[in-house]
Each structure stands twice: as structure tokens, then as C-alpha cells.
């Protein structure tokens, strides 16, 4: 079987779902089910007695086969991310942590230095560290060296829908990496997920494209199918490109041809 391997965990789905920005918890839960995702991200937030529906742990736990991957969003330093990771593991029992450290809310670009420091410490503590990073092949390799379970370079800025703007750098990261490469952020259309998978990504992480669509469940299913199609395409091996036409039909012996 073709499975996504992360640490000791195996997943048949290669679509990882973010749970933010949905119009309501029920809409999000339906999208999770439709997506077939087995790994979903959540964010640690303060309990609010006026918004009890914000608490997603209970409802997500009821979906069979779901593993939680808490993120460290809100952290702008390694120390804050490490603290969030520890609290999240207490609550979730999951070893997965998406290390997400972005100091600037304008562009949400991840801080490579703080991310590196947090990843090194958390990996040494036994976390399955999934760092959200800029598409930097050197940083990706350094994160692999300190024991990350994957690297998650962005396709484009979080929530921007600019797709695989980083495709050229992603290709280098995929070529160089010995751990799974997961495109995280920026995807808009299911076809972009398919393309990322055809390029050799091990999985894609999608949130806004599904949450902000008119029909999140249907979009979740579309991303599920696109991710699978792209994976099949990658495994089958794309044909070589040519600048010249290469005929698929015989060009000789046509009806009525004078020889």
C-alpha cells in the first residue's frame, strides 16, 4: 500500500486539513469527513464561556481515524512555540506538532531562526515536528538534520490563494529531502494540490481554499480526489516533455494517399 509515513504513524490519506476559518463547527466537521483527511490541525486558544462551540477537541475526536496535529500559531519566538507544544501534547496526547512561528501578521512569513531552534528542541523531546517554513532548500535540510518528521514549505502566503508560487524552490526541496515534503499554505484550486503531488510532494495541507469556498464539503472532496490523482500521476511517472509535436496517430498510409 502507498502510505504517508510520519514517524511511526502511517496515513492512507495525503491530504491534511486545517480547521480554521470555517463558518461554523458543523460545517468544518462535515468538510473533515468529506476530505478523508486523517491528520487535522488545531490551534490552542483560551476557553471562552460565550463561545463554547470553539472547543473542537470533543467533536473532532468523535470522527473515526482522526489524529490531531496542534499548531503553535500565535507564537513569535521559539520559547513560546515550545510552551504551546508542551501544553498541546498534554491535551491532545498526540506527538505531532506543527511548528508555526510568524512574527509579522502582515505577511505571516515564518521566522527561520526561531523555527530552527524550536524544531531542534522539540524533536529531541520526542515530538513529531512538522515545521511550517519558507521554501528554502537549505533550511529544509537543516531541519531534516535535527530530526523533523517532515518539512512543510509554503506554496505561497497563508490564505493568499496564490497557489504554487514557490514551485521552483519546492522542486529543489523535494529533490534534496529524505523526509516527507508537505506543501502548506497558499493553495486555492484542487488542481494546485494535484500539481504539488505530481511534483513529488508527500502530502498537502489545505485550509482556506476549503473553508472559504462556497461549499466546503464539496471542495474538501475535490481536494481529496485531486491529491489522490496527483499522487497516482507522480507514481506513474510523467512522460518526457518535448518542444516538438510527437504524433500519436500514424502519419502515413492515410485513406486515398498516393504512394
Amino acid at each position: 500500500m502507498d502510505h504517508l509515513q510520519l514517524g511511526a504513524y502511517t496515513f492512507s490519506s495525503r491530504l491534511i486539513l486545517g480547521t480554521g476559518k470555517f463558518s461554523s463547527a458543523p460545517v468544518m466537521l462535515e468538510a473533515v469527513k468529506a476530505s478523508g483527511a486523517q491528520l487535522v490541525t488545531v490551534a490552542l486558544r483560551r476557553f471562552n464561556r460565550e463561545q463554547l462551540e470553539d472547543d473542537l477537541f470533543g467533536p473532532l475526536s468523535e470522527i473515526p481515524g482522526i489524529t490531531l496535529m496542534p499548531n503553535t500559531s500565535g507564537a513569535s519566538t521559539a520559547a513560546e512555540a515550545i510552551k504551546a507544544a508542551h501544553i498541546s501534547r498534554e491535551l491532545s496526547g498526540s506527538p505531532f506538532i506543527k511548528v508555526e512561528i510568524h512574527p509579522n501578521p502582515q505577511h505571516l512569513m515564518p521566522d527561520p531562526i526561531e523555527t530552527m531552534e524550536a524544531a531542534r528542541i522539540l524533536a529531541s523531546e520526542g515530538f513529531l515536528v512538522m515545521p511550517y517554513i519558507s521554501p528554502d532548500p537549505v533550511l529544509a535540510k537543516r531541519l531534516e538534520d535535527v530530526g523533523c518528521a517532515s518539512v512543510m514549505p509554503l506554496g505561497s502566503a497563508i490564505g493568499s490563494g496564490q497557489g504554487l508560487a514557490s514551485a521552483a524552490m519546492l522542486s529543489i526541496i523535494i529533490r534534496e529531502s529524505s523526509i516527507p515534503v508537505i506543501v502548506d499554505a497558499g493553495l486555492r484550486a484542487p488542481s494546485e494540490a494535484a500539481r504539488a503531488m505530481e511534483m513529488g510532494c508527500s502530502a498537502v495541507l489545505v485550509n482556506s481554499a476549503i473553508a472559504a469556498s462556497d461549499n466546503p464539503s464539496e471542495m474538501a472532496a475535490a481536494f481529496r480526489d485531486a491529491t489522490e490523482a496527483g499522487r497516482h500521476g507522480f507514481k506513474a511517472g510523467l512522460m518526457a516533455e518535448s518542444t516538438e509535436a510527437v504524433a500519436t496517430s500514424p502519419l502515413t498510409s492515410f485513406l486515398g494517399e498516393q504512394s
Binding site: G18, T19, G20, K21, F22, A25, M28, T41, V42, A43, L44, R45, R46, F47, D54, D55, L56, F57, L60, L68, P70, N71, S73, I87, S88, L91, S92, I158, G159, A185, L205, N207, S208
Partner: peptide
């Protein structure tokens, strides 16, 4: 005292 939950996030 801090009481924290898992909310939606990407």
C-alpha cells in the same frame, strides 16, 4: 489560571 481549548486553526 489559564484554561485552554483546541480551536480551529490551519
Amino acid at each position: 489560571v489559564e484554561i485552554l481549548v483546541f480551536a480551529g486553526g490551519g
